[in-house]
Design a protein around this nucleic acid. Sequence first.
DNA 1: TTGACAAGTGACCGATCGTTCACTATAATA
DNA 2: TATTATAGTGAACGATCGGTCACTTGTCAA
Lengths: 200, 200
Amino acid sequence: MAKDTKERILDTALELFSKNGYSGTNIRELTASLGMVKSSMYKHFESKEEIWNTLLDRMTAYYAERFGSAENLPPVPDSAEELVSMTMRMVDFTVLDERIVMTRKVLAIEQFRDGRAKELATKHFLSGLTEMFTPIFAGMMEKGIFKRDDPRMLAFAYTSPISALIHLCDREPETTEEAIRQAEAFSRHFIKIYEAKNDG
Amino acid sequence: MAKDTKERILDTALELFSKNGYSGTNIRELTASLGMVKSSMYKHFESKEEIWNTLLDRMTAYYAERFGSAENLPPVPDSAEELVSMTMRMVDFTVLDERIVMTRKVLAIEQFRDGRAKELATKHFLSGLTEMFTPIFAGMMEKGIFKRDDPRMLAFAYTSPISALIHLCDREPETTEEAIRQAEAFSRHFIKIYEAKNDG
DNA sequence: TTGACAAGTGACCGATCGTTCACTATAATA
DNA sequence: TATTATAGTGAACGATCGGTCACTTGTCAA
């Protein structure tokens, strides 16, 4: 029951931090939305900052678990169309999963103030995606689906625009459908350019 | 002299907001770094929030002046190499100009809390760049430098990765040189793909 | 010279911040 | 049944927040 409350505090903290940032969130509001009184929080965390650091721990662990381990990487697609559908599954998931959305928001807000948030932001927003797709493009080149090229450059060129659209969804959720369409259009355009086809 | 102080308050506010966000910045610290006492600020602004709104006004006006007017748009390059140099001039400028860096940081921090910051963020980070480069790519297709394609899609595909690297510089200034090299490498790679050349 | 006004000051306001602490209720353990 | 640990409470703490106000200073026009 103690652990449960601790988790609920972290969940609510993520929610509020993603709206108002760390300094814009206060303990009273946090605990009140859990039906508690502020002093109760200190039975689970010794300070507001410890909540923040624990949240970062959780983000770091989650990221390592989900994107860090090799066995969790997506398989190399067997066709260009399969790359599209794999990409769109990833986009759908990352844009619709509330916790991931809130995590990105918190990192965007706190990236200039906190060193660990900065590191996580670079991973989430840039290097992580590039590193995830580099072996995919390398594999698809080996399979003859894509022309030979620098797989890392392709991964960077492919994931950055999609990442920009994901950020757009975070910022303007009402444009999510349109942004997802744009992501798919970009994916297909990208493939048309790089595909190792011989017909027109 | 009054106007001068008002401008200095706005400059310092931009600096502090870009570090600690709006709610993480207090009037005492702001005025103290101007050698003033906090009550003096209220001779120039009627509240902290008015500083914030005036700052947004200034950002909006600056953006409209610099990127909004057609006559300020860069000319269509006459060669692919010219596109590279134009791009790199733009990247250098936007990454080294302290005020623009701080503006992007503020928008990144406050984009989820303030409606106007959200709009400006989308312009700065996504749509503005796409709209700026769409006529450039259209023009370069007309000139036969690039293959015929959707100019808006190309502008999006070209500017998003560069924008991602600019964000990286904001977040990790110590990697600026490397990021600029990456931007140039990407630009050249992009051109090689889309160039309307006939030699293999 | 005087009067008006803008700019800056320092003391002070109430509200809110994160945090502490003595206390109670509860449930498991011995 | 008595004991102990845990979770939650409510009052209170000092610090800090944004903001106000009576006041002084300097400048310039009448």
